[in-house]
Amino acid sequence: MIQSILDGILTGAIISLGAIGLTLIMHILRFANFAYAELLAIGAYVALVFDQLFPVLVPALDTAFAPLTLTGALALSMVIAMVLTGLSAVVIDALVFKRIRQKAGPLSMVFASFGVALVIRNVIVLIFGHHAQLYSQDIARATVISFDPLILIKPDQVFVLALALALMLALHLILTRTTFGFALRAVAENPSLAQVAGVRLSTMVAAVWVIAGSLSAVAGTLYALTNQLNPLIGHVFLLPVFAATIVGGIGSVYGAVLGGFIVGIASGLALMILPPGYAPAMPFLIILAVLLFRPQGLFGEEQQ
């Protein structure tokens, strides 16, 4: 029980990171972006490329920070992945979503995002192949916290949780303490009014894509660090990330964080009640349950 909750919190941290970006995108651009989770895959693969490149250039980077399996090379690669994934998010927007936004409604955007997801995923397959890859072959061993009840934690997962919380705090400060944060919130509240007040909408949209892209890059890399990397990770993450966003309420960063933890914990606890075969349905049962009581999500604003 305690173990399941703990596991849920650790998985939830990664889902939360992914959900923050999605909730901002869905709020400002007002469409369900099904290509969003592919940004996780882009980030993780970019990190993989540099992670393999750095140790060749600077061998010292290849030692792991004990007790983590994270190496200096990977930490650096993750930063590069954040930048490059943020940029690719902006490029994808300019190539596809911007054009459609100018001509059509949100539904066209939803379907375009499906198409974009298909393209990205299969381009990754063409370049990297289907097979599973790892940053480190070493298996991260769990530390026993308590024997009765048995509670195990992996150092990597604690690191993931800490990093995720730190990034969330940073984002919180940006959104509440900076002019940029105010502008962003103004755009989200009322795009036309914000423009009248001198906020450049296109800059804001690009900024949101950069934030979403870089957070996804971190989420993707951390996921690949604690599990494995294959071209399907975007596909695998899509549903939990959406669930977290909706449970939290679209547009609410704190809701997304909480939603991520709820989805993570509930999926862990679900196995105590449901047979494991039903695990994929779990995020949706949570969504349904939350929406039945709060149709706008936990932190969503009342519509209409």
């Binding site: 375009a112 198409g115 298909l118 393209v119």
Partner: peptide, 8 residues
């Protein structure tokens, strides 16, 4: 990739 591009 072709199908995705075409739809977009």
């Amino acid at each position: 990739i072709l199908i995705g591009t075409l739809i977009v």
